[in-house]
Design a binder for these strands. Structure first.
Length: 153
DNA sequence: GCCAACGTTGGC
DNA sequence: GCCAACGTTGGC
């Protein structure tokens, strides 16, 4: 059984095109406890992940990926020269985690936040919540399927 | 670039 | 443990 997720990324930081070119990536830099807990405790190998471009024009789901490695310590957190460095995270006692994703599909038609907000089928999504800032969030299968259907059509 | 809606930090 | 100050996210 697999679960469904939505991961946010600013495309100028890391885009679906970057993942497509790279094939596989480490999802480093998550520095929010709620997002970390989802990733560390619930994101499993084989799960499918909607790739969302935030702070974008328009902000949209632009494709999906597959989880190919489950949570392990985010080594960027103890690299002093990394923008994600956190002095409170150590190799002995890591505070932050990451997973690996493999590229699956880039949508022909990105599914914009506007569309997600306009359809009643998506009313349960975290993206619809006022003040939503969660960068890793669970998605219901029905929502995942419909977004893929809209994106690929 | 603005700012609302958070989350985090640290003094007390 | 409270809460003010500060930092961040992300839509617009």
């Amino acid at each position: 059984m697999c679960s469904y997720w939505l991961f946010k990324s600013e495309p100028q930081t890391y885009s679906i095109e970057d993942l497509e070119a790279q094939g596989v990536c480490h999802w480093e830099g998550v520095r929010n406890y709620q997002a970390r807990n989802f990733m560390r405790d619930q994101v499993k190998c084989g799960d499918l992940v909607l790739f969302y471009h935030s702070n974008s024009k328009p902000s949209a789901v632009v494709g999906f990926a597959r989880v190919v490695k489950e949570a392990y310590p985010d080594f960027t957190s103890w690299q002093v020269d990394s923008e994600y460095f956190d002095p409170k995270s150590t190799e002995e006692n890591p505070r932050w985690f990451m997973v690996d994703l493999a590229f699956e599909t880039k949508f022909l038609k990105p599914v914009s936040l506007q569309v997600i907000k306009s359809r009643p089928e998506f009313s349960s999504m975290y993206l619809r919540r006022k003040g939503d800032r969660l960068s890793i969030q669970p998605v219901e299968k029905a929502c995942f399927d419909l977004i893929c259907q809209l994106g690929i059509a």
